[in-house]
Write a protein that binds this DNA or RNA. Structure first.
Length: 160
DNA sequence: GCCAACGTTGGC
DNA sequence: GCCAACGTTGGC
């Protein structure tokens, strides 16, 4: 299977791209996801080296703010086993883990964040899951063409 | 901070 | 296995 591309949402008040960039090794387990579809992507479909766009939600401006990559295969999310954790789920056990995650490694921050508004107005991006009405999945697959367009917008090439 | 659109849960 | 009630998400 060739390299795939993903968009992962985060609320920067909880965890931002700057937090990711300042982690040891610039790597972070993407824990706390409690949605089955998103879980399935992490558990079944994501591969080391897949491209990830980091998206900041619930802030002004909402935007894709940089690039990361998938840095592990899926493995159980141990925060689901911790009663003190906000994302604790008593139905997830060591024997039968319900929730999975992948590690994500920082690659680059965009010089020009690509705002939701821009995404809405850019030809070629109209089919992104992000801009479909009612879509709120926190991990979304991207087409290669969409990845390319957003990278170009986020890291404008100097013409000289 | 509001609230519409979703997703999940659990009684029946 | 339906669906009402409840909880959550995330743009505004």
């Amino acid at each position: 299977m060739s390299r795939r591309y993903w968009l992962m949402k985060t609320e920067p008040g909880e965890f931002s791209i700057d937090d990711l960039a300042s982690r040891p090794g610039q790597i972070e387990p993407w824990d706390g996801v409690r949605n089955y579809q998103a879980r399935n992507f992490m558990r079944d479909d994501m591969r080391i080296g897949d491209g990830v766009l980091i998206y900041h939600s619930r802030v002004e401006p909402m935007a894709v703010v940089g690039i990361a990559e998938v840095a592990s295969e899926g493995y159980p999310d141990d925060t689901a086993w911790n009663p003190d954790c906000k994302h604790y789920d008593p139905k997830s056990t060591q024997e039968q883990p319900r929730w999975f995650l992948v590690d994500v490694r920082f690659i680059a921050k965009f010089p020009h964040p690509v705002t939701l508004r821009t995404i809405r107005h850019t030809p070629g991006l109209e089919n992104m899951m992000l801009v479909q009405k009612g879509s709120r999945l926190s991990i979304q697959p991207l087409r290669r063409t969409e990845w390319d367009i957003i990278i170009k917008l986020g890291i404008p090439r100097k013409t000289e």
